[in-house]
Design a protein around this nucleic acid. Structure first.
Lengths: 232, 232
DNA sequence: GGCGCCCTTGATGAGTCCTTAAGGACTTCG
DNA sequence: CGAAGTCCTTAAGGACTCATCAAGGGCGCC
């Protein structure tokens, strides 16, 4: 049980190495990427709790990477930079970053900011990639689901739908947004698809599918994934 | 429609005044408190999107106030301080603060950090679109309403009617105008529709639907939405 | 080709919302 | 005082949405 999965994005191998050693030493699982493009791919394929993103990189820069990640996911993002310009900070924060730390960073402060940012992304607490929702235990790394004692299989569409719910947890997601995210931009009006698949998901992850406590209907608007927030 | 409600907590009246003017000028609704105790009470009684909390205050200090607020609520908290000690930062963040800004602060950066923190508040997504009216809290993005402790659902027509009221607040809106705006140009004479729906809206958002304080009747003319303009 | 799995589509019933109507309280005016 | 109009409230029927089931159709695999 790690303190969380962190993706370190920096083109400097020295920094990647130091970060990996330091963060691993404090209980985090660490993966890294050497460019914005590689980071986008990793964020899309795997599950992380937080991204440490260098601002100044060749190729697609830190800012553009930040915007692109934020367009796909609500994961926590902390930007790192050598520069201490006010303009940079504002741009980074408005690009979707949750926090901004200037190098050379003070380690206790960086760790505290990592903890603070991870508090705000409740769906990723706990062991890596795993998440309990409803009566089910979902592993987003291996795509396996365990519920009611047995293993349950999710079809590709069911899994993509559930992934979108999880990455936008606790928020009302309109029908159209769900359809376009999972089926494609041309499927915005096929509300029937949603009904069928939400129904099947409920049968697989809810304790009582007929009175769901996790995958909730928001009448006339869409659906919402209710996550039991840890602590509090 | 404001960019969000902010509570400024500082014992220095000069700072409170500057903050109020500055933040109000950037579209926020601002209330203030002169001590940690007063802040706790306001947070308990009212609803805010964010707390700007001074670290160094007489009585119950900023840190303890932060912990206490966090124990009760998931509201965004940004701590302000004159000191730039690393220990302070770590303590503040671990006490539940979402961010930490040292005075003298840079205004664009502070505003950017406020925006970033507000993005993470659990109830809504983004600072726009929320509004308190009467006994209710309306979110025009997710179409959700919270009133009298519980979530209330608005039907499509109820929601469109309320939206028109809000976008033309504090003005007497004639029956005909409301009908044509919500139902269409052919419905200018169906005053009965209005009566039924205004009645239902009152039952959902007014503290005492039988003696409305927010959605007011203007006899012989139409209706008017009274917006509680905060202090002045 | 045959088989299995998954996606799409249609049908049905339950539940919710819009429209309409009607009764009662209140105000205005003859 | 009585009549007429406005306003509030409640209730009932038709229209729409949602949940559920089940039957084709597409696709890959043996």
């Amino acid at each position: 049980m790690s303190a969380g999965r962190i993706l370190v994005v920096d083109d400097d191998p020295q920094i990647r190495r130091v970060m990996r050693v330091t963060l691993t030493g404090h209980g985090f699982e660490v993966d890294d990427a050497t460019s914005g493009e590689a980071a986008l791919e990793k964020v899309r394929d795997q599950r992380f709790d937080l991204v440490l993103l260098d601002m100044n990189m060749p190729g697609i820069g830190g800012l553009a990477t930040c915007r692109e990640i934020r367009a796909q996911s609500e994961i926590a993002i902390i930007m790192l930079t050598v520069r201490d310009s006010e303009m940079d900070k504002v741009e980074a924060l408005d690009a979707g970053a949750d926090d901004y730390v200037t190098k050379p960073y003070n380690l206790p402060e960086l760790l505290a900011r990592i903890r603070a940012s991870m508090r705000r992304t409740p769906w990723t607490h706990g062991p890596s990639g795993r998440l309990t929702l409803g009566a089910a235990e979902v592993d987003f790394d291996t795509r396996q689901v365990v519920a009611r004692g047995g293993a349950v299989r999710l079809t590709p569409k069911e899994f993509e739908l559930l992934r979108y719910f999880v990455t936008h947890a606790n928020r009302v997601i309109p029908h159209r947004e769900l359809l376009q995210a999972v089926w494609g931009p041309d499927y915005g009006d096929q509300v029937d698809y949603l009904r069928v698949f939400v129904n099947q998901l409920r049968k697989k992850i809810e304790a009582k599918p007929s009175s769901p406590t996790c995958l909730l209907t928001e009448p006339w608007v869409g659906y919402r994934l209710q996550l039991a927030s840890p602590q509090h």
